[in-house]
Amino acid sequence: MAVAADVVARTLAVVLAVALLSPRLVSSNSEGDALYALRKSLSDPDNVLQSWDPTLVNPCTWFHITCNQDNRVTRVDLGNSNLSGHLVPELGHLEHLQYLELYKNNIQGAIPAEFGNLKSLISLDLYNNNISGVIPPTLGKLKSLVFLRLNDNRLTGQIPRELVKTSSLKVVDVSNNDLCGTIPTTGPFEHIPLNNFENNPRLEGPELQGLAMYDTNC
């Protein structure tokens, strides 16, 4: 009887351990899946993504990826990596991501609205690419965002007024795009220099008395 009781106790211990670990494994795998979706959407002539192996439990051993002590992805560092292709909405699953560095590549297409789910994001650096479409209003949900650098792309549309409520913003650079409408002057935009908006031929200048001047033709 003692042997049987010992077997039962050991079995329960194993089941409990699996139950405790499962959420972490599932979340880590979902992060790996999200990053692998990005890899599949990109052309990588210099093989900088060669270590991104989707069969691993989590992506923390991949080059250009940083994780915290809980094996959650906090940084993606792929600036100036000769990449081309598109961003993917799956990146919105990286809820612990703080730094997304994809500057100085040849990434095309739109910024996914799902980036508004990156609730821990501090820095979004997509400058010097070939990104088009509008700046997603969902970025206004990023309450930890400090750096938003989207300059030197092909972005169109207006600067989302949702960003005015992002009090953490310190740096916004959208120069050298094709934005239109007016420049916000309230909230964090009160301290953003005007040269961070220059070379947008259809951008008309600062709002009058902080009132948004929406252009229906924009």
Results as ranks from 00 to 15, higher is better:
Ala2Thr: 11
Ala5Gly: 10
Ala5Gln: 13
Ala5Thr: 08
Ala5Tyr: 12
Asp6Thr: 11
Asp6Glu: 13
Val8Asp: 07
Val8Arg: 14
Ala9Glu: 12
Leu16Cys: 10
Val18Ile: 15
Ala19Met: 13
Leu20Arg: 13
Ser22Met: 13
Ser22Ile: 11
Pro23His: 03
Pro23Tyr: 08
Arg24Phe: 15
Leu25Asn: 07
Val26Tyr: 15
Ser27Ile: 05
Ser27Trp: 04
Asn29Ala: 11
Gly32Gln: 06
Asp33Tyr: 15
Ala37Val: 03
Ala37Tyr: 03
Leu38Met: 09
Lys40Asn: 14
Lys40Asp: 11
Ser41Met: 05
Leu42His: 03
Leu42Gly: 04
Asp44Trp: 10
Pro45Arg: 10
Asp46His: 07
Val48Ser: 05
Leu49Ile: 11
Leu49Lys: 07
Leu49Thr: 05
Gln50Glu: 10
Ser51Phe: 02
Pro54Asn: 09
Thr55Arg: 15
Leu56Ala: 14
Leu56Pro: 00
Asn58Trp: 06
Cys60Ser: 04
Thr61Met: 07
Thr66Asn: 02
Thr66Val: 03
Thr66His: 02
Cys67Leu: 02
Asn68Met: 00
Asn68Lys: 00
Asn71Ser: 09
Asn71Gly: 04
Thr74Leu: 01
Arg75Lys: 05
Asp77Trp: 06
Gly79Arg: 08
Asn82Lys: 11
Ser84Glu: 09
Gly85Glu: 09
His86Val: 07
His86Phe: 13
Glu90Arg: 07
His93Glu: 10
Leu94Val: 00
Glu95Tyr: 03
His96Lys: 00
Tyr99Ala: 00
Leu102Ile: 13
Lys104Gln: 11
Ile107Asp: 01
Gln108Pro: 00
Gly109Lys: 08
Ala110Gly: 02
Pro112Glu: 04
Glu114Ile: 07
Gly116Cys: 06
Gly116Phe: 01
Asn117Cys: 06
Lys119Asn: 05
Ser120Asn: 08
Leu121Lys: 03
Ile122Gly: 01
Ser132Glu: 15
Ser132Trp: 03
Ile135Arg: 05
Thr138Leu: 04
Thr138Pro: 01
Lys141Glu: 07
Lys141Thr: 03
Lys143Asp: 04
Lys143Met: 09
Ser144Asp: 12
Asp152Tyr: 12
Asp152Met: 10
Gly157Val: 09
Gly157Asp: 06
Gln158Cys: 12
Pro160Lys: 02
Val164Ile: 14
Thr166Trp: 09
Ser167Ala: 14
Lys170Trp: 03
Val172Gly: 12
Val172Ile: 14
Val172Asn: 11
Asp173Trp: 06
Val174Arg: 07
Val174Glu: 04
Ser175Met: 09
Asn177Ala: 07
Asp178Phe: 15
Leu179Ser: 02
Cys180Val: 01
Pro184Trp: 07
Pro184Val: 02
Thr186Ala: 15
Thr186Pro: 05
Asn199Glu: 08
Asn200His: 06
Pro201Thr: 10
Arg202Val: 00
Gly205Phe: 12
Glu207Arg: 00
Leu208Ser: 13
Leu211Cys: 08
Met213Glu: 15
Met213Ile: 08
Tyr214Pro: 00
Asp215Leu: 10
Asp215Asn: 15
Asn217Tyr: 13
Asn217Thr: 15
